[in-house]
Design a protein around this nucleic acid. Structure first.
Lengths: 101, 101
DNA sequence: AGATCGTATAGCGACTTAGTTATACATCTC
DNA sequence: GAGATGTATAACTAAGTCGCTATACGATCT
């Protein structure tokens, strides 16, 4: 559901990162981390529920693919804030005119 | 610390959204939500610790400003994934053409 | 069919989180 | 200085999360 929550866990963020390099089976993901297979399975479930990955069954294996849609959503959400760092000086100035404690 | 974790809470995400419209005192933030003042105070603390807001004391008030730096960081992190939705067919192909062991 | 493999789920414990009310504390007003 | 105001912290509770081990279950192999 909440993509930010799904990405908040460092293990999950790293799984997403690895899947950016191409699909992986569940076991291949397990092999890249120190934690147990059930723990990875659960992370994959959370990523699935967040829409960040899709599964393609292949016999007894599950091939996990990155689904970039939620990341694109975040990119869109960031649009509201880009003015703060995209060279609009008035926004920057607006942001700057304070005395940090 | 973890910006994603800070943004995972819907109340905090909305506080960030409101601060994009300009600085607000703690009380002004409290007035925009149904939850208690201490709850908001804690959310503001989390946002502060995540670097998403800065505080400027003004007498007994605290003026909270959005700090876009962590959002810019997310924007940078997304660079690794933009190829997935920015129409580059070779990247898509790159992503498709593999046969996991 | 029976064993094995790949993966998911169940159930538990330790820890964290988000809310509450009560209270502390500094600042302002009188 | 005394009271009020703005904000943060403390103490607690309910609920969620993340790890583990044990186990279930379908797919494959023999």
């Amino acid at each position: 559901m909440n993509v930010f929550a799904a990405l908040a866990d460092p293990t999950r963020a790293e799984i997403v990162d690895r899947l950016a390099g191409g699909p992986l089976t569940a076991t291949e993901v397990v092999d890249q981390f120190e934690i147990s297979q059930p723990a990875i399975s659960r992370h994959l479930r959370v990523l699935r529920e967040a829409g960040l990955v899709t599964v393609q069954p292949a016999g007894r294996q599950r091939i996990y693919h990155l689904d970039p849609a939620p990341l694109r959503d975040i990119d869109g959400w960031l649009d509201r804030y880009r003015r703060f760092w995209s060279g609009r000086l008035d926004a920057l100035e607006d942001f700057m005119d304070q005395e940090p404690a």
